[in-house]
Simulated scan of single mutants.
Amino acid sequence: MTSTRDWFGTALVEIAREYDHVVVVNCDLAKATRTLQFKEKFPDRFFECGIAEANAIGVAAGLAQEGFRPFVASFGHFLTGKFLEIFQTVGLNDAGVVLVGTHAGLAIGRDGPTQMGLRDLALMRTLPNVRVFQPADGTETWQMMTHLATDRRPSYLRLCRQSQPEVHADGYRFRFGIPHVVREGADVVVFAMGGTVPVAVEAADRLAADGVTPTVVNVSSLPVDRATVARLVGTHRQAVVVEDHYLVGGLADEVGRIVLSLPGRPRFDVLAVPDYGQAGPPEDLYRRYRLDAAGIAARIAAHLQDAVR
């Protein structure tokens, strides 16, 4: 197992060999964001801006307007914290920048809420021309990187610190906006993203012992295809979103809007972070917020039980 930020660093070097318009704009975090390999292989295409995300975003926007495909990397919390600069220089100019936000969610652990990427999806989703990507494993990271290198749209790539197992079967092909079913089931459909996908699969394994068989869906890019989500929800009694993000503004809002538009309004539940987050070991934080496999399984079981009362 490895993290999607590690897969990103490896894939970045490989796509740069094929696409010489790919460059990196860094914010003094090359080791943490895994762009150090790129710096060593392509020093002339690596631009260090220091601890100055606002400047880095402006530099990246300028490079994009000159035909390059810049990947500007920092912690997701810090990078999207410069939302005004993203809005003004990337969004309004439709500049083909890939904003790479690492350390998404609670997994940064002891560094606490001042460094946790927990509100980044909410911010990026407000920009009408910015696409959001969050891979669930190495296979998907590689395919997304190829897509991003050959695309020209402004994008936000959200990456995790924690190691993750492969969840996609051989033959998987990433398609922007199309959710992918990684576990077929019944009873309830669970939508997850990034680091929560393998955890949702583990929760499904736990529930299977009690005769509950959730369908687990990887939503790896936004905006999501409404018809696909509507079809998946329509074939289940319940729908649940699990995300390593604030309760407001992320995947739950995206899926919830679709659910509310469906006839009969299926039962809908969300597991996410309802406060600013805390500092502590990652495993303790996921347990606290019931975003570990045991917590997700218990919440789904309770949700289903309430439905039959």
Rank of each mutant, 00 (worst) to 15 (best):
G58D: 03
D94N: 15
F78Y: 10
G67S: 13
I51D: 14
D44G: 09
A56P: 03
H77L: 08
P43W: 05
G76A: 14
A54L: 12
R69C: 01
E66V: 07
H103K: 12
V72S: 04
D44C: 09
G105P: 01
N93V: 07
H103V: 05
G67Q: 11
A73F: 00
E48W: 06
F68G: 01
N55Q: 10
F83Q: 05
A73D: 02
A64Y: 02
G81H: 11
D44T: 13
F78V: 03
A73I: 03
A64G: 14
H77G: 04
A73C: 13
A60L: 10
G105H: 02
V59M: 15
T80W: 00
D94H: 15
P43N: 09
S74P: 04
V97Y: 00
A60E: 08
I51Y: 13
F68D: 04
A52E: 08
N93Y: 11
A56Q: 03
E85P: 08
A104T: 09
A73S: 11
D44Q: 15
A95S: 15
R45G: 00
G50M: 12
E53L: 11
G50K: 12
N55A: 06
F78N: 02
S74K: 08
K82V: 07
G67C: 14
V97R: 00
G62Q: 10
I86S: 05
A61G: 10
T102F: 01
V90S: 02
A104W: 04
G58Y: 01
G76Y: 00
Q65R: 14
D44E: 15
F47T: 06
A95F: 06
A54G: 14
A56L: 05
Q65A: 14
Q65D: 10
P43Y: 06
E48Y: 08
F71R: 01
A104G: 13
A73K: 00
Q88I: 13
F75W: 01
L99W: 01
L106F: 08
P70E: 13
N93M: 15
I57M: 11
I57R: 07
G91I: 02
S74A: 15
A95L: 09
G58C: 12
T102Q: 06
F47Y: 14
A52T: 10
T80R: 04
F68A: 09
E53T: 11
